[in-house]
Design a protein around this nucleic acid. Structure first.
Lengths: 174, 174
DNA sequence: CCTACCGATCGGTAGG
DNA sequence: CCTACCGATCGGTAGG
């Protein structure tokens, strides 16, 4: 519901209605509307970091590592389209402390992604591109998947990931 | 303000306050809050289509054409970060008819972009990638620029566009 | 462009 | 998990 109507556009009464209770009763389950948003964001963030940690320190060629991270990222987004959308878009409605907390989490993820790219550049297996710009672009493309991906469409998540890696690594030009 | 606080999170009183008048007075300038959102979205959409039309039917290699469209797209986003953000994110708060209208506009732009990619594939100058997936990914990366681009940062829009084209066309792998 | 105001709705609490 | 309710705020209108 946060994804579809936006955080600000979703009322406690909307949420309560969706689960068949009164708005006031929701406060037996959650601390506040914002806390609910926080919980969603933190949970999704955890998924991303768990995936990253599985790959981060494994010894493998930069090319393989990047492809693997992309695959895992795609898997998380496609398996939880709503959660991903909220984590990526609605997190900014958190207030002060929670806002800063999520901002840092997002930054850290991007940086770890960037480290993998950078390693490939330094090893000489990747072209001499701008690792930061590259990482931002790739993550943008990956993150936007939630906006158009249809779970029952023609593309499976793993095929999607494969095509992504291919495009990114090989380039468009023949 | 729509960008920063979101459409739903921005009140008429917020807007009025920003221009130093009362909320009620805003209605001498705009029809409604939604109409204001619509105007912003339509104006930005027009920018994108104007740019596309300048390139669309010009005779040039697919590779050049794609690079040119990317350059123009980047220029529009970087020159109007707020507008781009609203066009890309807040448009969905439009109701029914306007929502559908914008949805079609966005789809049409993506399709025209895709046509350029497809032409390159058919001419054999591009690899045999999935044009739709490719277009979605590139546009995602381009659209997300508004999220991190700093006007006074190290990258000029044209340099940004150049690096983008390079990465996309040549690929990451050496 | 203002004051004054409308009915509706907001997140949340009290008390059971 | 409910009823009843709080003060605040919402988009918008009437009338000047």
């Amino acid at each position: 519901m946060f994804r579809e109507k936006g955080y600000a556009g979703t009322s406690m009464r909307d949420l309560a209605n969706a689960v068949g209770i009164e708005a006031a009763s929701l406060y037996n389950h959650i601390k506040s509307k914002e806390d609910l948003l926080l919980q969603i964001c933190v949970a999704v963030a955890q998924d991303f970091f768990d995936a990253l940690d599985e790959v981060k320190n494994v010894e493998m060629p930069a090319e393989k590592k990047l492809a693997l991270v992309i695959e895992k990222h795609v898997a998380i987004v496609t398996q939880n389209l709503d959660g991903a959308a909220v984590f990526l878009h609605e997190w900014r409605f958190l207030r002060k402390d929670n806002f800063d907390r999520l901002k840092n989490i997002r930054k850290k993820y991007r940086q770890e992604f960037q480290t993998i790219v950078q390693a490939g550049v330094e090893e000489g297996v990747f072209r001499n591109i701008n690792p930061k710009l590259y990482s931002l672009s790739v993550l943008s493309a990956l993150n936007w998947i939630y906006d158009w991906y249809k779970p029952n469409g023609e593309l499976t998540p793993s095929e999607l990931a494969k095509q992504f890696s291919y495009i990114l690594l090989e380039g468009l030009k023949k």
